[in-house]
């Protein structure tokens, strides 16, 4: 894998002249997890989609740059709340989808290793409908890893899972995506407190950087400092609404 770069997005966005988010500057540190925490409608998903080069419906004025000067959108992998698995394709085909879409020959050995790493080796030829929610999200993670991009954008990928599966997935993702520049957009203070090496709260008035817990991520679910951070993040979110 190419070394992951720092990433900076700065600018402001508006929809039909109404400001979606005020001028802001967000820097994602190279090889680290940045958690962008915010309530619904503050534009955190728009920030992620802008970095990914996806349609947002908003007019963005500003720039998105990588510290190595290379283009950004071509080097991202994307994972959303919806696993986006193709229902007609098998697990193995879904994992190697990117190569097929680019008309490249997929590295089958690597694909099989990733599937094994996600503990899905017994499900290779199954269709997504035969899998549980957690298994499906593991396939999506394997597909994201298969892309092997230095920048990974996660748009609330765990929010539809039950508490236990979510905690498992958080650990699995933290371990699997180690060393990449990761942006995790989430509305869950607990998730941000567990995973963020840098935590930024997004509100209509702008971005507020917060101190992450000292323990290395992923932090234990019952780590006291993590729970305190979760509490203070939630307090910050609620203050902004009031």
């Amino acid at each position: 894998m190419i070394p992951a770069p720092d990433l900076t997005i700065s600018g402001h966005a508006s929809i039909d002249g109404a400001a979606l988010f005020a001028p802001l500057t967000l820097t994602l540190a190279a090889g680290q997890w940045t958690c962008l925490l915010g309530g619904s409608g503050v534009g955190k998903t728009t920030v992620l989609r802008l970095i990914a080069g996806l349609e947002t419906g908003a007019k963005f004025t500003g720039q998105i740059t990588a510290s190595d000067g290379q283009p950004v959108a071509a080097r991202v992998a994307y994972m959303a709340q919806d696993d986006l698995l193709l229902p007609w394709a098998t697990v193995a085909q879904n994992v190697s989808l990117g190569a097929r879409l680019r008309r490249e020959k997929p590295d089958l050995a690597r694909r099989d290793r990733l599937i094994e790493r996600m503990r899905l080796q017994n499900h290779m030829t199954k269709k997504p409908s035969e899998l549980s929610g957690g298994q499906r999200q593991r396939v999506a993670l394997a597909r994201t890893l298969m892309e092997d991009r230095p920048i990974v954008l996660l748009d609330e990928p765990f929010s539809a899972l039950d508490a236990r599966t979510r905690a498992d997935m958080q650990e699995l993702a933290a371990e699997a995506l180690h060393g990449r520049t990761v942006l995790l957009v989430t509305h869950d203070p607990g998730e941000a407190a567990r995973l963020g090496q840098s935590i930024v709260v997004m509100t209509p008035s702008g971005l507020t950087p917060c101190q992450p817990p000292h323990a290395p991520a992923p932090r234990k679910v019952d780590d006291v400092e993590t729970l305190e951070t979760q509490g203070s993040l939630l307090r910050l979110l609620r203050e902004e609404v009031a």
């Binding site: 991202v76 992998a77 989808l97 097929r100 680019r102």
Partner: peptide, 16 residues
């Protein structure tokens, strides 16, 4: 969502 995913994968129009 499928089209977004394909776009981040640098898919071309025909393969999509």
């Amino acid at each position: 969502g499928y089209l977004d995913l394909a776009r981040t994968m640098q898919a071309n129009r025909r393969t999509v």
